[in-house]
Amino acid sequence: MLLFRSEQHVDRWCQQWNRPRGGTLSLAQGWKLAQLWYGDRLDSQWRSKSASEAESVFREVGLVGEFWKLNV
């Protein structure tokens, strides 16, 4: 999960490394995702998210579609 200046730089990177274009999100979405994902990590009873819980977090951040699905 890498940071880029622009869509054009993402395309250039994908071409250089022979990778298909993946998913993109804004830095603001990334920050919200990080808060939802890691905000409870120091809780003593923390447990990893189920696939459904993870998908719910993605939806909350606006990340929807086949790329973000975990339950198949």
């Binding site: 993402v10 804004s26 790329f67 198949v72």
Partner: peptide, 16 residues
């Protein structure tokens, strides 16, 4: 709060 919104994040591999 983020102090900048410049840039975007690319994830090369689908979540699953």
């Amino acid at each position: 709060k983020l102090q900048t919104t410049r840039g975007l994040i690319h994830i090369a591999v689908a979540a699953r």
